[in-house]
């Protein structure tokens, strides 16, 4: 009796989880599949996951005046070459790397000393300051986007890397996360460093930083994913200069550049943009989960 009940329970748990996994994975499945197929296969919804990979003719190549024999290729090759040829995808990705990495580094430079002060130093008003940090967590970005934009416009920084980076340099989430982690670092360790002759500044960078690597990694993934994928803010501040576009924004320009039914190259471009994040996440997965569970955030 009991065995049957537990079997049913397991079955139920697993079916819910599998259903959830399908919902999450289906868009990625379609993205990958479309990036492999020829336009006609996408339209008629045939060819399974990979498509038949029959040699097809590149219609644009023909329009451009080339002989038809020179414009024959497999759909997968066509999709991915088109993705890189039709838009400066590499440039967009380099922009993305530069912006996300800069944001993360500055966030760490700001958040670590703040978190250290909020967790380990005693000063008047500390609890009030921490209350403010928590309060700032509640403010959605969109609520302050307009004032931020106006400020940046007034100082003439729109359409620049600075506009993409500066608004994100102070991460209250980062301060909060690191503060929670630092609370678990024993005070004795800091006192020992003080006895050894370290200044408060060196304690932050030579003692706290190395012990906080798992938490930093967790924060790093949150930060990099959020800003790599961010569409809203770059759309607001990058209005003219296509050279400054980040991948999601580039993707949009990409779409309007293309004919409406060129899903193949577009999905190929999307795959290329998503891939770095997936790879980083898989590499850091174990320590990432360590980092979140350790700080008690799930």
């Amino acid at each position: 009796m009991e065995l049957k009940a537990s079997w049913l329970g397991e079955f139920f748990k697993h079916s819910v989880l599998i259903a959830g996994a399908i919902v999450v994975l289906l868009p990625f499945y379609l993205m990958l599949s479309y990036s492999l197929k020829s336009p006609s296969e996408i339209e008629t919804n045939t060819g399974g996951f990979t498509g038949a990979q029959q040699i097809m003719t590149d219609s644009r190549c023909v329009k451009a005046g080339n002989a038809e024999e020179d414009c024959l290729m497999r759909p997968i090759v066509y999709n991915y070459t088109a993705a890189f040829k039709e838009a400066p995808l590499v440039r967009y990705m380099l922009n993305g790397v530069f912006v996300t990495v800069s944001i993360f580094i500055i966030q760490v430079i700001v958040a670590l000393p703040c978190a250290y002060a909020l967790s380990k130093l005693k000063f008047w008003g500390r609890d009030v300051v921490f209350g403010l940090v928590i309060f700032c967590l509640l403010i959605p970005v969109h609520a302050i986007a307009l004032p931020l934009y106006i400020m940046l416009a007034k100082v003439g920084l729109t359409n620049s890397y600075a506009a993409l980076i500066i608004p994100w340099t102070i991460s209250v989430f980062g301060i909060f996360l690191m503060r929670q982690f630092f609370m678990t670092v024993p005070d004795d360790l800091i006192d020992a460093a003080r006895m050894d002759g370290m200044s408060e500044f060196s304690i932050v960078w030579q003692v706290m930083l190395p012990t906080a690597i798992p938490a930093l990694l967790a924060f790093g993934i949150f930060s990099v994913v959020a800003h790599w994928n961010d569409y809203y803010w770059p759309r607001v501040v990058i209005t003219g200069n296509k050279d400054l576009m980040t991948p999601p924004l580039g993707l949009r320009m990409f779409k309007s550049d293309m004919d409406g039914n060129e899903y193949g190259p577009m999905m190929a471009a999307t795959t290329v943009i998503v891939l770095p994040l997936v790879i980083i996440f898989l590499m850091a997965q174990r320590r990432f989960i360590e980092g979140i569970t350790m700080t008690g955030m799930k």
């Binding site: 006192d191 020992a192 003692v207 190395p210």
Partner: peptide, 13 residues
Amino acid sequence: LAMVFQSYALYPH
């Protein structure tokens, strides 16, 4: 002065 702590407080890294 040098201090020895109950938790030893060695630099873990």
